[in-house]
């Protein structure tokens, strides 16, 4: 049925639903419009490739960009293998008994824990407990913890979409359970896993609270050289430019520029997620 016919047949619900959709889009475009209209003027090659200068009133944000990218990398390395392994265990190996249900409920609940709590937990465990100090490693591990519940949940959902008949087909040929998972189930669920993982990582990349106490610095002169150094990150830099800086009015364009860069970065991650999904979907069809 085409658009016009739907409206003719039942105008009221169609109009209301369309209105809600447009409302959501309006907010999204207001935010994007605000940031990009005020931030684009600050964007330039030197803004992206220079370090901050003159008490962060001039110069660029290179250390924060690199810091966020490295941080996301550490987060990925810390959370991806464990998260996927955990999801495979829960979905393919664990018996569906009370213990599993409790574990699953606990993981779902972890996804709802406020990110500041993760920050404090990371401070206690990684910074002080394991003596990793306030460092990019501590911050990355903390964000890894934050991402784990999302990664586990989305991976489990992706594994569940693989029909049981696929597993039976492989087992009936003499494949072991591990071979079935490795060769049939995982490849078939990669689009779902990749999408979920990248979306949760792009969310982690924009987090401020968990890195606040665990490694993000106001200002560091160079790029992080090893895992145990403090670092600058885009969301924290933005927070700082907006609320903590001595001359907030002067650095306002820089703040908008930083916000724009952060949004572009996260969008790029999301686009990669959609590309991966489409690529694998095409292969599977």
């Amino acid at each position: 049925m085409n658009f016009k016919a739907i409206f003719k047949e039942n105008p009221l619900p169609a109009t209301m639903l369309l209105f809600c959709t447009l409302l959501v889009c309006t907010f999204l475009f207001l935010i994007l419009g605000e940031i990009f209209s005020k931030g684009l003027s600050a964007l330039s090659w030197s803004f992206i490739f220079d370090a901050p200068k003159n008490g962060m009133t001039k110069g660029g944000i290179l250390p924060a960009i690199v810091g966020t990218l490295l941080l996301t990398l550490i987060t990925t390395l810390a959370s991806l293998p464990i998260g996927i392994a955990c999801a495979i265990y829960l979905s393919e190996y664990a018996k569906n008994n009370t213990t599993t249900q409790i574990i699953r409920a606990a993981i779902r609940n972890l996804a709802g824990v406020p990110s500041i709590i993760y920050g404090l937990f990371g401070l206690a465990l990684f910074v002080q407990g394991l003596q990793l100090g306030t460092s990019i490693l501590s911050a990355g591990l903390t964000l890894g913890l934050l991402s784990l519940p999302y990664i586990i949940t989305t991976t489990e959902e992706a594994l569940k979409t693989v029909p049981q008949s696929m597993r039976e087909g492989a087992l009936a040929l003499g494949a072991t359970q591990f071979e079935t998972i490795r060769d049939i189930v995982l490849p078939a669920s990669i689009p779902g896993i990749a999408t979920g993982v990248i979306l949760s990582l792009s969310r982690a990349a924009g987090e401020t609270a968990p890195i606040l106490f665990t490694g993000a610095a106001f200002y560091v002169t160079g790029l992080p050289g090893n895992l145990f150094q403090e670092f600058m990150a885009l969301p924290y830099h933005l927070y700082m430019l907006t609320t903590q800086h001595q001359s907030i009015a002067t650095v306002r364009p820089l703040a908008y520029g930083t916000a724009a860069v952060l949004i572009i970065l996260v969008f790029m991650l999301n686009i990669v997620a959609f590309m991966i999904r489409n690529k694998f979907r095409k292969q599977l069809k």
């Binding site: 039976e168 087909g169 492989a170 009936a172 040929l173 049939i184 078939a188």
Partner: peptide
């Protein structure tokens, strides 16, 4: 090993992706 010896064809065709 048993399942290699005893193959199975299912009700609905289930080719791998």
């Amino acid at each position: 090993k048993l399942r290699k010896k005893v193959g199975m064809v299912f009700q609905k065709p289930n080719p791998f992706p």
